[in-house]
């Protein structure tokens, strides 16, 4: 494969909106699930996408794989335009990307055995023919830590962790370069969660996979990802290398999320509440900085005008105006939140 000068994935100003009908079908509104998002993923890189429910992180993941129609902006995979692109470009996207899902049971066809599901991928994408198929299925199952005998089982006969492994094996059958993992460990038991994270780490190393890891569990993201993007109400509010995001978050939302990670330290008190109120609905996004109603540092100016854009500081970007106020680079918000050394 000729290595191009393009990044593996390039998303620019992507927006996704869904129409919703108001009461009795009057007054059509739309939910802006994803709003003006730009990001890049290089080959072999793992980008964590975090945020609360309703932040639009899953929608973004699906829009990147062209499973959700973008209303504005572009997605390019290896430089080829995917949004509104040619069928051949989308076919090439499908040849090189795969997705793993949150619910390991419901993402597998209940009427197919694990082996049939994987074999179907191999056949459709011409990755193996005839007698080579069962051999390859066995190989893939072994790769994800299952027994080749599991090929004859149906999802119902497997545990959650085994199903998730089967889902990963099916994704790998494509021989993808990018995997979008949507909350893929959230539904699993803690001990199984760690096994799946390790598996993803292994695979990434062995196959040079790029992963878009969508999760709400920041501890897992910290463990696995090279870079992290934080979403709030459809926008990326902060993005940067993992250690920077966790150690020196610049957006007050990120610091609140980081501080809220429950740690197994009996002597650490339950952190003080760093957010006000409840997450607003994506149906009525506040004016100004969308985060200002919950921000404990919000200034009157935060409630007006357009949403603040991302400011870049080296490889770190954040969407908060508070930093302009203080002359030094560390702003008042993070001082309080830096509990992780």
């Amino acid at each position: 494969m000729a290595t191009s000068t393009y990044p593996l994935l390039e998303v620019e100003n992507l927006s996704v909106a869904f129409p919703v009908s108001g009461g009795f079908g009057f007054g059509r509104r739309s939910v802006h699930a994803v709003n003006d998002v730009s990001l890049r993923i290089q080959a072999g890189e793992t980008l964590g996408l975090v945020g609360e429910s309703g932040s639009g992180k899953s929608t973004l993941g699906r829009a990147i794989l062209h499973l959700e129609r973008a209303t504005a902006g572009t997605v390019r995979f290896e430089g080829r335009l995917i949004t509104g692109g040619l069928p051949s470009d989308i076919a090439s996207l499908r040849e090189q990307t795969a997705m793993i899902f949150q619910d390991p049971f419901s993402s597998l066809n209940p009427r197919q055995t694990i082996g049939e599901g994987i074999a179907e991928v191999l056949r459709v994408h011409g990755k193996a023919q005839g007698a080579a198929i069962p051999a390859r299925v066995g190989e893939l199952l072994t790769l994800v830590g299952l027994d080749p005998e599991h090929a004859t089982r149906r999802p119902q006969a497997l545990s959650g962790g085994q199903c998730q492994r089967a889902g990963i094996a099916r994704a790998l059958a494509i021989e993808p370069r990018l995997i979008v993992a949507d909350e893929c460990v959230a539904a699993l038991d803690v001990s199984i969660q760690a096994q799946i994270i390790n598996l993803l780490m292994d695979l990434r190393e062995r196959m040079g996979l790029a992963i878009l890891f969508i999760a709400h569990d920041l501890a897992v993201v910290r463990r696995l990802c090279d870079r992290v993007a934080v979403m709030y109400l459809g926008r990326i509010v902060e993005m940067g290398p993992t250690h920077t995001i966790f150690d020196q978050p610049l957006h007050p939302y990120t610091s609140a999320l980081v501080a809220a990670i429950p740690e197994i330290d009996p002597d650490r008190p339950l952190p003080a509440d760093l957010l006000r109120g409840e997450p607003p609905s994506p149906l009525s996004i506040p004016a100004g900085c969308p985060f200002h109603p919950r921000c404990i540092h919000a200034l009157p100016a935060c409630g007006h005008g357009p949403a603040p854009g991302l400011r870049h500081r080296a490889d770190h970007a954040f969407a908060c105006v508070l930093h302009d106020r203080s002359s030094d680079s560390i702003h008042p918000v993070t001082k309080g939140a830096l509990q992780h050394e």
Binding site: E95, S107, N109, E120, V121, R170
Partner: peptide, 25 residues
Amino acid sequence: RDFILAARSLGYSHGRILFFHLLPN
């Protein structure tokens, strides 16, 4: 359901999704 989304993400044609994945269920 997720497995239909999964089938789409795996690049299956509509006919295949309808007849091999949706209908049997």
